[in-house]
Amino acid sequence: MAQDGYTGAETTGFVSPASDHLEGPIDLSEVLDLRRPNRYPVRVLGEALIDRGILPGDVLIADAAADPRPGAVAIVMLHGEVLVAQLAHKRGQWWLRPGRRDQPAVPVSEDMTLWAVVAALVRERV
């Protein structure tokens, strides 16, 4: 229900022909599946993934139940830091592929936690 109580049906003069067809505003929690226990919104810092279409300030919807796959963007915890990075699978193991070409790929190791895989992106201002 809208805050002022008018949903498109409570007319005073003519009966609203829409009253049997009301649906309310679009619920982005629903669209982005935010009520699921595995969905976590996170905020991007830094410009390293601009070529991948991910800008600083973007909200990523991380999915902790999704399986990693090559080319996916993942949230990982490493050395006390939380990173968002592209995954690659080469020579039988997983790598973090840096967004900037001048940096080497980092093998996914024991001391790294694959926290979630990015499923969606929200940009509040375009």
């Binding site: 996170v42 905020r43 830094g46 410009e47 390293a48 939380v82 990075a85 967004g99």
Partner: peptide, 15 residues
């Protein structure tokens, strides 16, 4: 409040 406030969600550094 990492999971309930949009202004407080976890920050992740692009790699």
């Amino acid at each position: 409040r990492y999971t309930t406030r949009i202004g407080e969600i976890m920050r992740v550094r692009a790699f």
